[in-house]
Nucleic acid binder design. Sequence first.
DNA 1: AGCCAGGACTGAG
DNA 2: CTCAGTCATGGC
Length: 209
Amino acid sequence: MTCAQAISALYRTLLAHYGPQHWWPSRSGMRWEIAAGAVLTQNCAWGNVEKAIDNLGGKAFLPPEHVLAMPDDSLREAIRPAGFFRQKCAYIKNMARFFIAHEHECLHSEDTIDWRNRLLAINGVGPETADSILLYAFNKPIFVIDAYTRRVAKRHLGLDIAQYDALQQVFMDALPRDVYVFQEYHALIVALCKESCRKSGCGALCAKL
DNA sequence: AGCCAGGACTGAG
DNA sequence: CTCAGTCATGGC
């Protein structure tokens, strides 16, 4: 079995086992909330991010103009549960400026790579954050690599590639250029890792992997 | 009590 | 490019 076939096979196995995830929890349904969440979740448990999001309006998530206008002290207090609150305060304001200026433009652009580069130019946005925003907030066809993906790639696919872009390319070359597939695949990898973590063995599924 | 969680930035070699 | 140090909270 080729590497590409193994990547496709793993996707089918995970999808059959866990079912569609319809991922990126967002209560308000705003693209902006997804992007802010992507920054807040940097090296931090999602449960802590939810507290921060609740503090920023939860279901009625505050629009970027409002967050940008908040005094740093207030914004820091709101996002404190997500950790690194001093830097994340600045990062989120950078992201708010991007949304105010470019949300509509980015949404209707076909040039994903161009917008990926623009996101990467923002202080506080690295490859994973940029790709998460493009894939889940803007529905662009790009594959997200994170710590979970690296673990699964190494463990179940024998892929030990250090460079972010290189590993991303392997997945993208192996799969159809399909937003839905990219969204589900990443979500399914997270589902697998969370479950293995809880049960300290992965049970029935691991036998198939 | 420590380790880690859906990273990114900076500086050094 | 690779690597360590830094940033901070909450859950287990």
